[in-house]
Nucleic acid binder design. Structure first.
Lengths: 228, 228
DNA sequence: CGCGGCTTTGATGTTCATCAAGTAAAGTGG
DNA sequence: CCACTTTACTTGATGAACATCAAAGCCGCG
């Protein structure tokens, strides 16, 4: 499950940690650990103590919260470069959300202790972290407002376009989530997600084959998303 | 409108910027500027270029976004110590939300250039900033999920308790917002906010006198908030 | 092979938005 | 300072959107 990171192969080091010079990179690479997770596994459980700073190297995960009545609310579907443990790590001692894997993923882990040491020793690195954090939280907030202002069909259309445009860059894609998870993400019932999808199919806006979705009439779908 | 900050009187320096030593504090204090705003004024407009890093020294403000159809969505009602310009300042060049004043407020401003210089020169300061940022965004996300999962009456009860418990620490308080703004905050119509308030009044859970609210039966209100 | 979870469709009822209309309060200009 | 306009607040009636309930088919897994 755990193996040393081969840093030469790590896109992230150059892409994100531009702030490091050679020796710092070395330290960083020696301290961190890669973990592989497969679809369905839970990486982080709400309430757990935060020990590691982790980020998503490849794959797809969801961040979510479980309500007192046992229902889940999905906060974000996160691609690589959006950090996994970003939200609370600098202000809380425990996670207040869970993370589970939607597509086989590789997570890089560094102990919070080591991270803080690195951050204190390198202000540019810390600034970059802050920038990244700002981007991710901005995305969460903007997206949650965008969803809130739409009606059922608009919400569903919005999610389809999100997968198509933001995540897969393709008009055809395999849904990485169940209908129920879509519902948990946009705050409606599973039945109504299905109903909307069926309507889109009947109206020849999309083709559905199980989890496989093809967007046929993107223009109309966008109209619906922008309040139809 | 603008005057030099009297740093001896500034609670924030000690409370938040514990990272500074004497000379750095001096620099900081000399560079920053205090601005006074009164109820109703707009401090930041969506789309404006970000020039200053500003934080709320005293008063109360709201962060909000205006939708394409011209309606406002309130993101957060922010007290002192929650930064005003926190969300996007490190990842965007322009604000993607607006800020306006609910109660006469004092804002401390520092140019982003100066702030970045300070941050790069002092990693502890930057870490503290990050912590603060993490707290604020966490609060926004947690609160928006909490509101999303409630029904109309639960949402309204939640807001009343928020004002009573988090903002004013008092069972009697003056609402700093209109009924419409409450509606914009919890994502329902103004009429339904009023209806819920009237019902709470009829059920003797609260007393209403214009903007003045007194919470009489907090226990029941909490039950309604926790899903009634 | 049977069980549980996911998906789908239909019927029903509740919640909430919309529309309408009126009162109160607060700002505006002569 | 008073008529005037606008904005905020309030209540009621109606209908649409959506949740809930129910039932059945499908698929994967032990």
């Amino acid at each position: 499950m755990q193996e040393k990171c081969v840093c030469d192969k790590c896109d992230l080091r150059s892409a994100f940690f531009k702030s490091f010079n050679k020796p710092e990179s070395e330290t960083f690479c020696n301290q961190k650990v890669e973990k592989n997770f497969s679809k369905g596994e839970i990486i982080i459980r709400e309430g757990e103590q935060i020990r590691d700073f982790s980020y998503l190297k490849s794959g797809l995960v969801k961040l979510y919260k479980t309500t007192p009545s046992g229902k889940d609310q999905i906060i974000l579907i996160s691609e690589p470069f959006d950090f996994v443990s970003l939200l609370s790590v600098f202000s809380s001692s425990h996670y207040n959300y869970s993370v589970s894997v939607l597509e086989d993923s590789v997570i890089c882990c560094l102990s919070m202790h080591d991270l803080k040491e690195l951050a204190l020793g390198n202000a540019i690195f810390t600034m970059n972290l802050m920038e990244k954090m700002s981007e991710t939280t901005d995305k969460i907030i903007i997206e949650s407002l965008a969803i809130r202002l739409r009606h059922l069909r608009g919400k569903v259309a919005y999610i389809l376009l999100m997968f198509s445009d933001r995540i897969y860059n393709n008009t055809t894609f395999e849904l990485p989530v169940s209908r129920r998870e879509i519902a948990e993400y946009i705050g409606v019932t599973t039945e109504n997600v299905i109903r909307s999808l069926s309507e889109f199919r009947k109206d020849k806006l999309i083709r559905i084959n199980g989890k496989e979705i093809e967007i046929i009439d993107k223009e109309t779908l966008e109209k619906i998303s922008n309040y139809g």
